[in-house]
Write a protein that binds this DNA or RNA. Structure first.
Lengths: 347, 347
DNA sequence: CACGATACTGCAAAGGTTTGCAGTGAACTA
DNA sequence: TAGTTCACTGCAAACCTTTGCAGTATCGTG
């Protein structure tokens, strides 16, 4: 029923190959012929069949975008930016959700591999080895993870975590907690590594909690431990958890930032809407989405030799959830208490 | 490089058609042969080429999901549910974002039409006529809009708006405002129609504002008008706008719910996280996504004759943003002031 | 034993497009 | 004028799979 290239050819009195060229290699066809063909095509409502085109060119003009959880507010801006960028380049994007599950993730890449020109793996949960292996079957660009020899775009969360810790310390907090993220998260490891190193360097206590699900529920649940440990400053793996902490503290009647300061990471839209407004490390998610798409497409274009890895800068956004530490001017930490790093990590 | 059906056929000593049948019509091939073929296929890492399959069967096993704005928190749960449901049925989904633009929307449907088995149109912005026209080119299921002869799944927002107004009135508010949504939104029209009718029936004043962009910025911006009009209860087109109102009121030092009550619609995750927690009309978004996918797939299966339209129930969730009206027990509205419906609508 | 039915399997066409190769006529060069 | 180049167009193979049809062997039945 839908018009094919043959219908257009017949109706405009040329061979199908001419019609094809009129679309994909304009310089190879007489401009009069071309405009006639295009007019006929238009009037017939002809749209090239992408499946047929993919079959012969081997390029689908689709890409896959795999995320851990579409409903996690971190991802929608990334998805939106990636989709928009892809469409500008005449690519469409399959979005798939792994539910934070490494196995689903692998299956998804495998299944998508044959029907896309490349896959964007966002905050993957599977092992580096597996990703390397998969990247031999289909071009892959990873977001939020650094793996040798795999193109990637990451946010500089290490820098972000350091700035956040320094911010808290600068406010006079010396007993801090880091609320860790999910197992298998590269970002989580980076944050932890950097936070621990910074705490040690600056000489404050840091209690590491986790791993945790990256949700506000987990954040709220961690509040009990946080209270027990007597810290006055908390850095969370992401804003969602930080907001959970805010929630939990509020429920216990603990005031933020008067009694406890809280810092998140990501700067999701929500952070500006909760009260107190969340101090957080802004990560350029939209830029990451666009960059990743460009890298993926370029990799295809240049015969896959670029193994570029780009790091995007993060920035601390100070809002209302952080304030002076309780003993800011009263009692600086004793020398013996300094630089202790406790860890409750289960990993 | 990747294994084709021919490689598998050669390696297992059968004809390609047998391999094909081993996959798609198991009952037509000897079970020994079949398991041998499958084993060989497995060892070769063979995956059927979906483009080739699509070319001959005419079915791509893909669907398109078109939304106005991926980053609008209303959509991610819907997308997630739809994607999950589709994948369970062995379908993959293209997600595309129209940026709230009707023209983009049409182009998108046109472009996607040829490479999907159906399109899910969520909260469309284009005209009914156009949708009907497009639905002749490709199976369509519409979410959040009712059009004669087009399969649809909608939320019962009329009921929701009525309940919300009644809730406010029950609390003693007699001067209400409705913060309208974007132009072209069926849901917005439903809400307005129902809110106006309810206000009239119950005998309270209702000021209608809009149309507005469905964002918290627009909500905050509307606060000035809201204050000037002296209403004590606000129903917003969606939670995002309601949260914007909360924000704007807070900035002006107006307390919620003591001075003004606010009700949203949708019950996005955010609503539980802002302070005060938002009273809102919960719409079953995930269920809508799943249902819509099922309807779309079924429509395909049964030779497109089902024009089912399903309405999902909504429910008022009372939280902390609504409270007794200022003059609740003091001064019931005078008879002359009752039932007046003002409208500032620009539509 | 002959016949038809049954259970598999092979053959080949078809689906819509791209693209290397070859052909045509015109324009240009020597 | 003859030989070349050039711009354009047509031809046909190829991409990978599905599927109607036909063929073969085995089995059961009368």
């Amino acid at each position: 029923m839908p018009a094919t290239i043959r219908d257009v050819a017949k109706a405009s009195g040329v061979h199908v190959s001419t019609v094809s060229r009129a679309f994909s290699s304009p310089h190879l066809v007489n401009s009069d012929t071309r405009s006639r063909v295009l007019a006929v095509a238009e009037s017939l409502g002809y749209r090239p069949n992408r499946a047929a085109r993919a079959l012969i060119t081997g390029r689908t003009h689709n890409i896959g975008l795999i995320v851990a959880d579409i409903a996690n507010p971190f991802f929608p801006p990334l998805i939106k930016a990636a989709e928009s960028q892809a469409r500008n380049r005449d690519y469409y994007v399959f979005v798939a959700d792994t539910n934070e599950d490494a196995v689903t993730e692998e299956e998804l890449v495998q299944a998508l591999a044959k029907q896309v020109d490349g896959v964007l793996l966002c905050s993957p949960r599977m092992s580096n080895d597996l990703i390397e292996q998969l990247s031999r079957e289909v071009p892959v660009v990873v977001v939020n993870r650094l793996i040798e020899s795999i193109p990637a775009v990451v946010m500089d969360v290490a820098q972000g975590a350091r700035t956040a810790i320094e911010h808290l310390v600068g406010l006079g907090h010396c007993d801090l907690a880091l609320l860790g993220g999910p197992r298998g998260s590269w970002t989580g490891r980076e944050i932890r590594r950097s936070a621990i190193a910074t705490a040690r360097a600056v000489g404050v206590n840091l209690t590491v909690l986790g791993p945790n699900q990256p949700t506000e529920v987990a954040g709220a649940a961690a509040v009990e431990t946080i209270c027990r440990s007597g810290v006055t400053g908390v850095l969370a793996y992401n804003d969602l958890m930080a907001i959970g902490v805010l929630e939990g503290l509020h429920n216990r009647g603990i005031r933020v930032p008067e009694e406890v300061s809280v810092v998140g990471i990501d700067d999701i839209a929500l952070s500006r809407l909760v009260r107190p407004k969340l101090t957080t490390v802004a990560t350029p998610t939209a830029a990451a989405g666009r960059t990743a798409v460009d890298m993926l497409l370029q990799q295809r274009a240049e015969d896959r030799r670029t193994t570029a890895q780009v790091t995007l800068h993060t920035e601390l956004v100070v809002r209302d959830s952080t304030g002076p530490g309780p003993r800011a001017t009263v009692e600086p930490p004793s020398a013996t208490a300094r630089g202790k790093v406790a860890s409750y990590a289960k990993e």
